[in-house]
Simulated assay, not measured.
Amino acid sequence: MSKPLIVIEGDSWERLPNFGAKSLPIVGGTGYDLGRGLEDLGYPVENIAYWGDTIAEIWRIKDYRRALRDTGAKHFLLGGGGNDLLGEGRLQTFLRLYEKGRKTEDYFKPGFYKALDDVMDTYKLILHDVYDRPEFRDVTVIVHGYDYAKPMKLGWIGEPMAMQGIDEYHPKLQDALVKYMIDHFNERLADLRRYWPKLVHVDFRGMVKGRWHDELHPRKEAFVDLALHLSQSI
């Protein structure tokens, strides 16, 4: 039995440039992604994702409309949000300075929750745009969060934390802050099912198991497992 075609839109988790395994960590050179993982499982894909894209940019351009129309696909994998929250070192603006004994949740300024609200509001705009159109009535939208990334001395997580005094000498706190953000992101995504019961949320938390190429991108062997896990929802 042939597998269904999937339209894929998102960020670098959906599509990475093929820089190869020896590339610098800053460019996410894993040579693999969720799109290629699904292809290797035998799924035909129309991958319009682009590394570095924000969910706001995806909404602005709306390329998914054309892809869904042209292919007639009934499955739409939608990823994104990480670049909106972490791009250009924004994490530093979300965190308070290190203070011994400060609780994890007390490190986050209101700006973090506002930025997360903006991401989720944009997801809602895209979902309304899909589900309110009769031509896409039978499409199943699949969304996913991210896993608990490992802070390194890079510009997305480790360096912004270090600028606030939360450096490599506080690894447990760094991990706790990442967990807090990833949990909130996933919980907010899953909550969208209250409005769109047909929406599928895939939870990747705890699956990478330390197999990180850099702060944001799993290595190929982890992406293989993530794609297999995702395929169970198709």
Rank of each mutant, 00 (worst) to 15 (best):
L125A: 03
L125T: 02
L125K: 15
L125E: 14
L125P: 01
L125H: 14
I126M: 05
I126C: 02
I126G: 05
I126F: 03
I126S: 00
I126E: 00
I126T: 06
I126N: 03
H128F: 14
H128T: 11
H128I: 02
H128Y: 13
H128G: 03
D129S: 11
D129P: 06
D129V: 12
V130Y: 14
V130G: 08
V130L: 05
Y131Q: 04
Y131F: 14
Y131V: 03
D132P: 02
D132Q: 15
D132T: 13
R133H: 13
R133E: 15
P134M: 07
P134D: 15
E135V: 13
E135K: 08
E135W: 01
E135P: 04
F136E: 15
F136D: 15
F136I: 09
F136A: 13
R137P: 04
R137E: 13
R137N: 07
R137C: 04
R137F: 08
R137Q: 10
R137I: 02
R137H: 14
R137M: 05
D138T: 11
D138V: 03
V139R: 00
V139Q: 01
V139I: 08
V139D: 09
T140M: 08
T140Y: 05
T140W: 01
T140D: 05
T140G: 04
T140K: 12
T140P: 06
V141E: 07
V141L: 06
I142S: 11
I142R: 12
I142K: 14
I142P: 07
V143G: 11
V143L: 10
V143S: 07
V143W: 00
V143M: 03
V143A: 03
H144W: 01
H144V: 01
H144E: 05
H144A: 12
H144C: 05
G145V: 07
G145W: 01
G145L: 04
G145P: 06
Y146E: 11
Y146R: 04
Y146I: 13
Y146C: 11
D147H: 12
D147C: 09
D147E: 11
D147P: 14
D147V: 12
D147K: 09
D147R: 08
Y148V: 10
Y148E: 12
A149G: 08
A149C: 10
K150G: 03
P151H: 09
P151F: 10
M152S: 10
M152F: 11
M152G: 11
K153G: 07
L154W: 07
L154E: 15
G155T: 08
G155I: 06
G155H: 10
W156I: 09
W156A: 15
W156N: 12
I157Y: 09
I157G: 07
I157P: 09
I157C: 01
G158V: 05
G158N: 08
G158Y: 12
G158K: 00
G158A: 00
G158R: 00
G158E: 08
G158W: 10
E159S: 11
E159A: 09
E159D: 14
E159C: 04
E159P: 04
P160C: 00
P160N: 00
M161H: 06
M161S: 12
A162M: 07
A162S: 15
A162H: 06
A162V: 07
A162K: 04
A162G: 09
M163W: 12
M163K: 15
M163H: 13
M163T: 06
Q164M: 14
Q164Y: 06
Q164L: 10
Q164T: 12
G165A: 05
